[in-house]
Design a protein around this nucleic acid. Structure first.
Length: 330
DNA sequence: CACTCGTGGAA
DNA sequence: TTTCCAAGAGT
């Protein structure tokens, strides 16, 4: 997508913008390449099975994005093409205020006001906004809209985001090489690095839970999680105690403890006890999958950590199978 | 409007 | 080790 060279493929713009929601470019890159290779067009993606898309998304996080991605692809396939207006785009699942504006500007050359975290920071500093986020968002949007050009709005939007990502960074902004330093009120006041101010965030509560990794010969017991809620729609091992569910083990068996997995979600931290057993009775939930057909890459990060303790042939045996406090407690 | 929803890298 | 946080959306 050379700057100023016509328009980018709406499908690729959409896919990349959705993947980049709250996710770094480095983390997205390989996923984007994989998705566009597997599904070159929105029609291809629309025809893909849900579980295959979920498996390819595994590890990227925020799994509602993957579920909305498929729903959106199917809606667009039914329409025949992507809507070319912000309103039309925003009506699709997984496309909100930011993404609809970004696609409109980048793919359809529309002068939409594109405001992401980068733009919020750049605008906050340019105008030295002292009011903390998120209360300052309406004012940020007004100021951003007032300086959005009608010429090459897509390049402008990406330039603003690149400025925030590479120069006007959250910590230690590189004001010395900033191309718009002469317009920056925060720099003039010497408070650039302190903006935007933010409301203090709540501490993360600690949760406990248990995950059961059961084997039956050369098969392992897995389940697909409900679409709603934590890790919604992902492949997982049966678990309980941490996500609102309080189910018993998925099968009556001689479960024994393998260790503890620590994981941090957006709004809580989790200590998950990993149990394993050889199943001699049919499981009451989940399904047995032959290890030859099982790949940990289809699991979300939390479940990959648990699998690392239970997998039959650890390529590299972990030096520590137990986390927590090795000192006391036997 | 406050809360839910992942993950991994950097300071 | 702890904290922050990254091209937000849905409810």
């Amino acid at each position: 997508m050379p700057p100023g060279q016509g328009r980018a493929d709406p499908y690729r713009v959409w896919l990349s913008e959705v993947m980049l929601q709250q996710t770094t470019v480095v983390a997205v890159k390989s996923y984007f390449e994989r998705f566009t290779q597997l599904w070159p067009t929105v029609q291809d993606l629309a025809a893909a099975p849900d579980d295959q898309v979920m498996a390819e998304w595994a590890g990227l996080g925020y799994y509602a994005r993957a579920r909305n991605l498929v729903a959106c692809a199917r809606a667009v396939a039914a329409l025949g093409q992507f809507p070319d207006t912000r309103e039309g785009l925003a009506a699709l699942p997984g496309i909100g205020p930011y993404t609809s504006a970004a696609i409109g500007a980048i793919a359809f050359d529309r002068p939409e006001t594109v405001v992401d975290g980068n733009v919020e920071r750049v605008i906050s500093r340019l105008h030295a906004l002292e009011e903390p986020l998120p209360a300052s968002k309406p004012e940020i949007y007004r100021l951003a809209a007032a300086q959005t050009p009608t010429l090459r709005p897509g390049d402008y939007a990406q330039a603003m985001m690149d400025l925030g990502a590479t120069i006007c960074t959250p910590r230690s902004p590189a004001c010395g090489i900033c191309p718009v330093i002469e317009f920056c009120q925060a720099r003039r006041l010497g408070i650039a690095a302190e903006l935007p101010r933010k409301m203090p965030k709540k501490a993360k509560p600690q949760r406990q839970g248990t995950v059961w990794i059961g084997f039956s010969g050369s098969s392992v017991l897995v389940e697909t999680r409900p679409d709603k809620g934590l890790l919604g729609g992902t492949l997982a091992f049966p678990s309980a105690g941490w996500d609102g569910s309080d189910l018993p083990p998925p099968a009556l068996a001689d479960w024994h403890e393998l260790g503890l997995v620590r994981h941090v979600f957006t709004h809580f931290a989790l200590d998950l006890t990993v149990m394993t057993a050889e199943l001699t009775l049919p499981p009451e939930r989940g399904r047995l999958v032959p290890l030859g057909e099982f790949s940990a890459t289809a699991l979300p990060g939390l479940m990959r950590k648990a699998w690392a303790l239970a997998r039959p042939n650890p390529a590299r045996p972990a030096t520590t199978r137990r986390h927590g406090k090795p000192t006391s407690e036997t």
